[in-house]
Design a protein around this nucleic acid. Structure first.
Length: 589
DNA sequence: CGTGTTTGACCTGCGC
DNA sequence: GCGCAGGTCAAACACG
């Protein structure tokens, strides 16, 4: 029996249920008064073995037998562990309690059984002793009530504690799920790139790749850890890793998906440079952490902050590399994820805190574009633009840029992870070649910006972007997970890929292989080289990421979060006074 | 008085 | 070089 007592609940055949809380140190003697009032000769008894404090018995007496004998039912809950025997004896008007009674084993349901309640009480028929016995019974009942109340409070407190624990675990689980989805996509992109490299390089490169695979395995584990702790911790981790591993490759593998834009851009640079090694551009990272600094970083003072990887910079610090690094910086900074959602509110709730720093009238749109900066941490580089769609003003287009350098609240995790994963997918998973998506525009014209498609990739200048369309609520629009036949031009239409969602069989490398094969070649590298600007492989790789059911789940989580928050936002904004100065803006979400 | 918003000025990149 | 458009800055302002 549990140390804190046991809760016994019986539902006997005659529909009487008795519940008692027992303390191991206490033997209980309980008589059901209600039942007794109905059936004067029926009673129940619950008691505990005083010897081992673990033996609990229920004794039930019934007056139903026609010959006047009581039928006693005993339930022994610990019969297997039983070392001493407690006997139960029922009598017409009293319970005889004997002192220590050992050695006699009485079978259940045996009438005329002796009773040993273990209370060490001697009972007779004298009035004084009866009153004493009654007093003890009452005292026992009072104690039982107190015990019960205490137990209830304990249980209640325990329940609250468990509930809190549950909430924490749920939050943790959500975070881990999001991280998992992002990681999976990241891994898929890495494997795709590995495949390309393997085919492109000779046996020497293959040897190198094998070591990379080993590093990758290690790196992925580290990725998971890093992704849980974005920001300085990840930065420090990278620093540490860079000292103990082969240089560039390991770093790119160990980057957390949250920072995968950076990694991806560097990968892009590598690939575009025909595998030449590009230095990890320090300003680019710094730029992400503090974009306002990027205009000042040309000064020696600005460069003085680059020390944490200066030994690498010196290694590859050619003017060409610097130039490429600057391009990388720009690309990283420009990589964007747009979210289209229907909202009456001026801003969708994404769990972060934002400060408006500007507003501008954009050409071709009567609605002003608002500029926000994340204020959850000093130096956080994330910015977002909020603008209503010109064609449908109920649609709010929110464009995110950059990576948070701080832990996110649970409410922000879904959106942040989704946008980060989308950006990662855009910049890495779909980029087997350098020129792939950047020089192509996968989208058919007219996809942007108000199409009802879920995901839209655009690599058109000046920066790559991915649009998550959450306006899928129309009656003519199908649910996300519903299976659709792929449209004929699906390979060029990433936004139609959600039509394939719901196929659980996909695993990204297989999908990639299948897609390459379906293109008519089994050699990814060959396929890549044969690709048109509207790259099939690019599309396929991205398709693999998007069609991953896990990505769907991440998206759905984000959508749910957004919709829920958005609706709360709406009601919240409706409560706000219609402040003209705020122009309906509510920065704190 | 601190915080956040507004808004005109300024900067930057790009196309011509 | 010039003009345009997007993006950012920062002083002024409003609000609690």
């Amino acid at each position: 029996m549990d140390k804190g007592g046991a809760r016994l609940s019986f539902d006997t055949a005659d529909a009487t249920a008795t519940t008692a809380f027992l303390h191991p140190k206490q033997s209980l003697f309980g008589i059901d008064p209600f039942r007794k009032s109905c059936k004067p000769f029926a009673w129940k008894q619950v008691f505990m073995d005083p010897v081992d404090n673990q033996h609990v018995s229920l004794v039930q007496s019934s007056s139903s037998s026609s010959d006047g004998k009581r039928v006693v039912n005993e339930m022994d809950f610990f019969a297997n562990n039983r070392s001493s025997t407690t006997q139960v004896k029922a009598d017409d008007d009293h319970v005889k309690m004997e002192s220590e009674h050992h050695g006699l084993v009485q079978e259940n349901n045996e009438p005329e059984a002796d009773i040993n309640t273990g209370l060490n009480l001697l009972t007779t028929n004298t009035a004084s002793e009866k009153s004493v016995r009654d007093h003890r019974i009452i005292t026992s009942q009072n104690q039982k009530e107190k015990q019960r109340a205490n137990q209830l409070e304990d249980v209640r407190a325990e329940l609250e504690r468990i509930n809190e624990e549950n909430q924490r675990l749920r939050v943790t689980l959500n975070q881990m799920n999001s991280n998992y989805y992002a990681l999976q996509m990241h891994l898929g992109s890495l494997m795709q790139r590995q495949r390309n490299l393997r085919s492109a390089e000779g046996s020497e490169a293959n040897t190198e790749m094998n070591s990379a695979i080993e590093e990758k395995r290690h790196g992925v584990a580290i990725v998971a850890r890093q992704f849980m702790d974005l920001g300085q911790a990840a930065k420090a981790e990278k620093d540490e890793l860079s000292e103990s591993s082969s240089e560039g490759r390991f770093q790119e593998l160990s980057g957390p998906p949250g920072n995968s834009i950076i990694e991806s851009m560097e990968r892009r640079q590598k690939n575009s440079g025909k595998n030449e090694i590009i230095p990890r551009d320090i300003p680019s990272r710094k730029d992400l952490m503090d974009p306002g600094r990027n205009q000042r970083e040309d000064t020696p003072e600005g460069r003085s902050h680059q020390g944490w990887l200066s030994h690498k910079v010196a290694k590859f610090n050619t003017s060409r590399d610097v130039e490429k690094a600057q391009e990388t910086t720009a690309m990283i900074r420009k990589a964007r994820v747009s979210v289209r959602a229907r909202s009456e509110a001026s801003m969708i709730s994404d769990g972060c805190q934002w400060r408006k720093y500007g507003q501008k009238m954009a050409k071709g749109n009567p609605c002003p574009r608002a500029y926000y900066r994340c204020t959850m941490a000093t130096g956080c580089s994330v910015r977002k633009q909020v603008q209503r769609c010109a064609d449908d003003r109920t649609i709010l287009v929110t464009t995110y840029e950059g990576n948070h350098n701080h832990p996110l609240p649970p409410a922000a995790m879904a959106m942040a992870s989704t946008t980060s994963a989308a950006a990662s997918m855009l910049l890495s998973g779909s980029m087997p070649s350098a020129d792939g998506i950047m020089n192509s525009n996968i989208l058919p014209k007219g996809m942007l910006p108000c199409s009802p498609n879920l995901i839209t990739l655009s690599a058109s200048a000046p920066f790559p972007s991915v649009t998550l369309d959450l306006t899928y609520s129309g009656p003519n629009h199908r649910p996300l997970n519903q299976i659709h036949p792929p449209p004929p031009n699906w390979s060029h239409n990433i936004s139609s890929l959600p039509h394939l969602l719901g196929h659980p069989i996909y695993n990204q490398p297989k999908v990639l292989g299948t897609l390459f094969t379906s293109q008519g070649t089994e050699h990814p590298h060959l396929a890549q080289n044969q690709m048109q600007p509207h790259s099939m492989a690019d599309s396929a790789a991205t398709a693999a990421a998007i069609t991953d059911p896990n990505f769907t789940a991440a998206l759905v989580a984000a959508i749910t979060s957004i919709i829920g928050n958005s609706q709360r936002d709406i009601s919240g904004n409706n409560n706000n006074s219609t402040s003209s100065r705020n122009n309906g803006d509510n920065n704190n979400t």
